[in-house]
Amino acid sequence: MSNKSMNDPLHPRPSRLASLAPQDEGEGARRSNTLEGEGQLRLSSPHGEVRNGAKRNEASNHEGAWLRFKRAKTLRKNFAYHGAGLAIALFFLAPLAVTLLASFRHGTEARQPAIPPWPTNGFSLDSYRSLDSFGAGVWQHTVNSLAVSLATVVLTVAVSLLAGYGFSRYRFPLKNVLFVLVIATLMIPFQSILTPLFIILAKLGLNNSLVGLTLVYVTLQLPFSVFMMRNAFDAVPKEIEEAARIDGARDLMLLVRVLLPLVLPGVATVAIFAFLNAWNEFLAALVLLSSNEKYTLPVLMMAVRAGRLGAINWGAVQAGVAVMTIPCLIVFLALQRYYMRGLMAGAVK
């Protein structure tokens, strides 16, 4: 970057060049040091080529002082920028770090207030062991949660991909009415339909089953997902699809080979939302599931949080929070690149 600005014919003034130089961390800083030492304007490009003529070498002290001022200002600005960024990052990371560290404290220590937040008597897995003693064991509940969440993601993506494509590209009667109806269901608080859902699932023989819970999650997730996917497909130019049709790609082939890569940001967004919502959902899981070994992690966490005989095992709570957070972090970090683009695509169109 520095190299480019150095060679920029539009800004041949040495002062301008020097003000740009410190932005380049290593090379620029070194160059600034030599500048200060020599006290004259002798700028060289990274290739060692002397850029400034004799006239420039005899520049006045006044300009030198101005240069130093400029450079100091840039450094201060950079420092403030990064400092503020670090501080903000710290605020966001601290609770996660405290929880994770506290979950590794010894059993007795875990009951004390978390100051200092790290284990003082060495690391131990006590908290995780006591977490495992709740319900049907933490593994069972984690597997339940993972199964439900991943199935929700797969079903939601599959259905919303097809529905979004249909709503975006096909012409059929009552298309807009249908779409508005789908979106309108977002306005219904899902707690209010919990009882009917329970009855329907019971009639289908799907109460107290993870399959039933998955279907409920997919249902709740679909309106937003269909909306998201329709926007994603709307943003794909029609000509690309027509070119693919001329090239001989049809129906599913067209969708998978040509369109899917183009709506991937939308798919990632839908997947993240579906996963997080299914993973963290509590009320429906509590109401629709009834046997111990079927409960998902949030229900387990409620039991842990409620404690036994009024005594809350804070170590187990910390461990449970850690177990619940990690998959969310992994999913978000893995997909965030697409997720951001997806949100923007939705915003503009």
Binding site: E239, I240, E242, A244, R245, I246, R250
Partner: peptide, 28 residues
Amino acid sequence: DPSERGIAMVFQSYALYPHMSVRENLAF
């Protein structure tokens, strides 16, 4: 179907497949 007519079309907006390299675009 368009692909069976023995035609090829060049669009005003190029309509290249943005996720494929030029080679893949040509070969698709």
